[in-house]
């Protein structure tokens, strides 16, 4: 029998991933806080989207209102830009922490990835990085398509001004392209998966220790929240494609 030194008790030096001050706990708190911001944002965004059923005038007025909000305290689009900067900062924090956490998770698990996971919760947890990347790509597409009006936007994209918004016309034109409508639909399913696990995880990340019953309730509520956002948004491209809204 060979006599190799068993290095029991010695710490294997680990490669530092991300800055030292960004502990796993802090990274999870940042992800949870920014995640909640996005959760609330997509819910309110969906509520605004549903105004499409109230007709072009109402929808465009709402779009203009977002731009004139807090006027004259703030200039035209002042609040909107402040809010965009806030969302951008949240997105940067969320994506960076997600990268740090998944890189650390991969390194600390080692070369034998866990197989044979149980249930839907494990599926959504495992797919968080993938669904996250798809959502990030979708956000870029969505902003180019309906906010900036460049690249992937339709040819007849109209920029809004203080005189009025063309959000309704732009939306209809964009969703009249079946490929875009289907991409949007798929992105909403992905959003459901990401949100269902994300919201459930935030409760744990904020250090709220729940019993089994309360945890099941939180899981159910997160799923319902994600379902409402998904279903509310999905109706719109379907309504456009079927000619219900035009």
């Amino acid at each position: 029998m060979s006599t190799t030194s068993v290095r029991a008790g010695t710490r294997t030096p680990q490669k530092q991933i991300g800055p030292r001050w960004l502990s796993n706990v802090l990274a999870k708190y940042i992800m949870a806080f920014t995640g909640i911001v996005f959760g609330v944002f997509v819910l309110v965004h969906m509520f605004g989207n549903l105004k499409v059923y109230l007709g072009p005038e109402h929808f465009n007025d709402y779009a203009l209102w977002l731009r004139t909000l807090l006027e004259p305290l703030l200039p035209y689009e002042g609040f909107l830009w402040l809010f965009r900067l806030f969302l951008l900062a949240c997105l940067a924090g969320h994506v960076y922490c997600a990268w740090v956490i998944s890189a650390r998770a991969k390194a600390r698990r080692g070369k034998f990835a866990r197989k044979g996971l149980h249930g839907f919760s494990s599926f959504t947890a495992r797919t968080m990085p993938v669904t996250g990347i798809v959502l990030l790509l979708f956000i870029i597409f969505h902003l180019l398509d309906l906010t900036a009006g460049i690249g992937v936007a339709t040819e007849n994209f109209q920029h809004g001004s203080e005189a009025g918004s063309f959000a309704y016309q732009n939306l209809i034109a964009s969703f009249s392209r079946p490929a875009v409508a289907i991409f949007y639909l798929l992105a909403m399913v992905i959003l459901f998966l990401h949100l269902a696990h994300g919201l459930y995880a935030t409760v744990n990340d904020f250090g709220i220790t729940l019993g089994q019953k309360a945890r099941s309730t939180v899981m159910l509520l997160s799923g319902l929240f994600a379902l409402v956002v998904m279903l509310g948004n999905i109706t719109i491209p379907i309504a456009v494609l079927t000619g219900l809204v035009s």
Binding site: A105, R108, S121, S122, A125, R126, M128
Partner: peptide
């Protein structure tokens, strides 16, 4: 030594 928790529940 260990990784971050993602609430897999495993």
């Amino acid at each position: 030594s260990f990784g971050p928790c993602s609430v897999y529940g495993e």
